[in-house]
Design a binder for these strands. Sequence first.
DNA 1: ACCATTCTGGACTAGTTAGTCAATAACTGG
DNA 2: CCAGTTATTGACTAACTAGTCCAGAATGGT
Lengths: 201, 201
Amino acid sequence: MLVVARPRSFDETRVLRAARDRFWSSGYAGTSVDEVAAATGLGKGSLYGAFGDKRSLFLRVFEDHSADLVDSVRQALEGPDASASERLKAHVGAVARATGNDITRRGCLVAKGTAELSADDPAVAASAQRTFDAIENLLASCIEAAQRHRDIDPSADPRQLASLLLAVLRGMEALGRAGKSKAGLIDIANTAVGLLPWVAH
Amino acid sequence: MLVVARPRSFDETRVLRAARDRFWSSGYAGTSVDEVAAATGLGKGSLYGAFGDKRSLFLRVFEDHSADLVDSVRQALEGPDASASERLKAHVGAVARATGNDITRRGCLVAKGTAELSADDPAVAASAQRTFDAIENLLASCIEAAQRHRDIDPSADPRQLASLLLAVLRGMEALGRAGKSKAGLIDIANTAVGLLPWVAH
DNA sequence: ACCATTCTGGACTAGTTAGTCAATAACTGG
DNA sequence: CCAGTTATTGACTAACTAGTCCAGAATGGT
């Protein structure tokens, strides 16, 4: 009974990546569907057929990218207690360096999409909130690991420290986009890390 | 020789405020010149005649608003050394509360405009950088005042603490837009303030 | 080979976009 | 009250917008 229909002729991952790059560079309102079609190589009919309207396509790209971001933070922060403090310092520094190295200044797609759309698209706002919550949880887990290893004062609230660090990370992103120098961003990272309640050894 | 011509019939400040509100709510690309004309009550010809093209109008609005922001931070942070630490704590807390109270979640126009346009408009990026530099300097001055009054450890580098606090402030803005609760934002503010190198009294 | 089904590409539509322009209004020094 | 200059308005244009539609193509089970 089931008859197989014509299969898709495009690689969904590649198409979504091309669409993401357009939205990332030009923003949601600043990117036309025709541009996305040209960048992906698909006809508009295929684009609409596969992903729905412009907003749905953006949301798909936004959520996929958010998941990638959380995964990369997880990779950076998860690991044994003994090296948790090193991973934490390294991650904050790595974000500072990556932000400072971003020649294009296009910044983070999650931040950009949230800035543009969260006020009038609850789905975007909710997705961004989940993303930042997930990153905050990863930071908190890493801090707890460092506390178990007695690198960070165990009496400190790991959730409070995590939410502060998340704010610092997002702040570095915002300042980097405005043109703050790489050295200035690294300075912020070092100051933030330095003020944490480390246990003297 | 000089003959006086027809004077403007609109209040420039009111017009710029109406234009600012449109850009603030809908972003640069998401706002049409027709919408701005309708919101200001001016015809398009007047708008173009008075402010130039869309980008010039946006830049004007953006820079005026940035100057207002710097002024308000100056008002909050300037004052005698004896109360500098209180002003610093109060300002960070006030930003957290204001961000948490922003029902519309439209956030800060400087952040939003920078996110949307800094990558392809050097004038926007330069303006944002000047704005953030000015705020950082105000924070540094307030920290120095608190150090003179021996509220903050005088051996700390006030510029480093200022740039960290600026990052925290911009981070709170970004997280607030994503939906972080008012209580969570206040928590971040308290944690950041609490980690500063206060002198015990 | 045929069929039911889905995929493809681009022509098409109706509405919107940024920016221009010409006719007219408002002003004051002379 | 006239002359010279600038302000105002909204109709106008050419290009672009999101989204639709359809004729044809690709598939694998029968």
